[in-house]
Each structure stands twice: as C-alpha cells, then as structure tokens.
Design a protein around this nucleic acid. Structure first.
Lengths: 208, 208
DNA sequence: AAGCCATATTCCAATTTGGAATACCGTCGC
DNA sequence: GCGACGGTATTCCAAATTGGAATATGGCTT
C-alpha cells in the first residue's frame, strides 16, 4: 500500500500547485479568448460602454466568434480594468444619465498584440445542431430531416447576406482593412455553409 | 409609484415561475444539447461505459459537435439515468474490474426522437480563433498573420482527411447511413474551411 | 401623462469546461 | 514475477461561460 502510493504518484507532487509557468507571461496574460475579443473591440480606439461593446460584437464579431452575453461583457470589462488592460471613467452629461466608458490602455494594447502574435492556433469550436440531428436521422422522419436542413440553409443564406453587408460597411471606414477582410471571409463561409446544406439535401433525397 | 409597479410589470407576474410550458413535454425533456448528444451515442444500441462514450464522441461527434469533457459525459449519463432516459448496470467479469455500462431506454429513445423532430433549428455556434486574430490584424505583423492562417489551413486539411476516414468507416457498418452522410458533410466542410483559408492568404498577400 | 423603446448595468442560477487525481488492468521487457 | 507504462474507468473541483431576469433611466410618441 505504501509502495503503491509512492510509485503510483504522478510527477505532480514536487510542483507548486498554481504553476506560473514561464517567466515571460505573468498570471494576468492568461485570459480566456473572450477577454481578448472584448479588448479587441476596444483596440479600435473608441471609448465604449458595455452596452456599446455588445453592439459592436453583434455587428461584426458574431459572424466568427461567440454571441455575447451582456453579463459576460461587463464582467470581462471589469477584469480587464483590474489587470490594467483597460481604464474606465464615468461620464455625466447634465441631461444624460451617468455611464461608465472603457478604453484600452497601452499595457492592454501590448498584451493584445502579444496574444495575437503568440497564442497557439487552435482549431475552431463548432457546435452544429443541424448536423447533430441529421446524424440522428434514424430517429426522425425523412420529411422533418429535410425541413431541418432546409431551414439551416436559409439561416446560412441570411447570415451570408448580413456578413456581406457588414463587409461593405467596413469597406467605408479607413483603417478597417482587416475587419473588411474577415467580413469577406465570413460572407464566403456562410455561402459555403449554404451550399453544403444544399448538398446535404441532395444526399438526403438520394437516400430514398 | 403604485401605478408604475402595476403598469411597468412585464407579463410575468401572472405566470408561475418554473413554467412547465406545454402539456406535451415535462420538465425532464428540457435538456441541454449535450445531453441529447450523449443520448444519441447510446441510441445506436450498444451498452457503453462513460469512457467508451467519450471515444465514440472523439471518433465522430467532434467533427460537428463539441469536444467532450470526461466529467461532463459522466454527469450527463447520471442525469439521463435520473430522468429515465438511460439505464445502467454494473458489469463484473471475474478478471475484469467492475464498470458501469449505460443503455438507452424506450423513454429515452422516444424523448430523443421528439427532440430531433421538434427542437427549433438554431444557428451553429462558432468560435473561430484564427478569424478573430485576423480581425485584429492591425496589431500583428503580416508575416505572423500569414503563419496563423496557414496553420489553420493545415489543421483544416488534417480534419478533412480524418472526417473522410470516419466516413469510410461508417460506410462499412449497415444502418449507419446517417452517420456516413454527416461524415461526408464534415469532410466537405473542412475542405471548404481549407479553401477559405487559402483565399484568406491570397487576400492578405494582396494587401501589401 | 402613459406607454414604449433603446440605453445601461447588475445579479443569479445553471451549464460547461478543463484538468487533476485516483484507480485498476494488461503487457512488455527484463 | 516485478516495475514501468499505457489504456481503461471514474470522480472531484475550480473556473469559465451562458442565459436571462431584474432594474433603471432617458427619449420619443401618441
């Protein structure tokens, strides 16, 4: 028993529990991608309220990254301020109600740059409900299956158009080459998604 | 004040808080998609341990839905058993160690069928780290940006091949038409993803 | 003035994730 | 036959993340 507890022990016993890893990055740079996304919105230079950050995310980010939860945006902003990557001040116009606006700091810009440059390239996270349900096709009627895929195709088409619209808006703003580029990518992505759905429909029809 | 509390009240006040909605589905059918995914794996008929469920997920599901966390699989299995959609028994071969295997129940199959048939078609959830970073291209060197996208392209190519392999395996199993169909879809999806990355690279080059 | 919509923020309960920890078993080399 | 290693099997815990309700306030209509 004593032998086994000693021998079976993985080599964790001699490590400190928290493990601040390399000297390069301190604890603060270990932020979830969502934090970087929020900071990224701020990196375009404007002072924004949490509400406005959300709208930006709704306009552009949603095509390729995460649909925002209000609560999370606000908590991320607080965290970013806590680690010094963002600074906030309250704005109190006399007739407008007081609100808190956030801006990126130099430290924040530096850290964000480092993240963009250095973070490992991870495969995208995909949760494709329509595909999941076709996978379970043996439990549904062929008609319903078609409907699901057709509706997904229509969703993709709509998103394609919205991304295209977003691309055109970005094209008007000087210095927004990269947002425009990504919007173009997104437009193509959703067009592909639509075509894939169409092919899936054809495959489903062939099954009968 | 009294007037406002009455008038400003959204129409929630007269509803019971839990809201079991329609007579059709009871509280139990309100499960997260992950639960349905796990139940879906069981719906192919075999008795599986949590560990085996995970391997199935790794083989097929990961291409279009969620990469599994062990802990979650086990807790989902427990929940599925609690609501009567799965049943478990312990297996104790004399030389093998005891383990717990789960199987889908009739109630589970019925509920899963209803979910596949009736659940609303929601747009896929996408978290595309590479796109996020290109969007922040103004903070990185063009070289590094290229590297990120190129690496993403290679990832996509690899996933394309793996999905293709998965498709071929599924083709051998009788009754796996739908898994095969979805694997084919996944293979195409990752091929498209690879091509989109290639186009993005071309766009990046044009920028200079 | 009432009602509604957009702005702005907070709170809470779940869900979901990631990963460490803990076993046990087979086998391969020695 | 024993020690190391890798695959099987499960549990636990701390965070991260989500969704949505709740709470305001200002501005615009009607």
């Amino acid at each position: 028993m004593i032998g086994s507890t000693l021998a079976g022990m993985p080599p964790t016993a001699d490590r400190p529990p928290a493990q601040p890893t390399d000297g390069d990055d301190n604890v603060f740079t270990r932020l979830p991608a969502t934090a970087w996304a929020v900071l990224g919105i701020l990196s375009f230079g404007e002072e924004l309220t949490g509400y406005e950050v959300r709208r930006w995310a709704d306009h552009i980010l949603r095509f390729f990254y995460w649909s925002p939860a209000m609560s999370q945006i606000y908590s991320e902003l607080k965290r970013l301020e806590r680690v010094g990557y963002a600074a906030s001040r309250t704005v109190t116009g006399e007739d407008t109600r007081t609100k808190r606006v956030y801006a990126i700091t130099d430290a924040g810009r530096g850290a964000l740059s480092r993240w963009v440059e250095d973070a490992p390239v991870e495969p995208p996270v995909l949760k494709h409900g329509a595909a999941l349900r076709v996978w379970l096709g043996h439990l549904a009627t062929p008609e319903r299956l078609r409907e699901i895929v057709a509706q997904h195709r229509d969703n993709a088409q709509r998103l394609h158009e919205e991304a295209e619209y977003s691309r055109r808006s970005a094209a008007d703003v000087p210095g927004w080459v990269y947002p425009e580029l990504v919007a173009r990518w997104a437009a193509r992505y959703y067009a592909a998604e639509r075509d894939l759905a169409e092919q899936m429909l054809a495959d489903l029809d062939e099954l009968r």
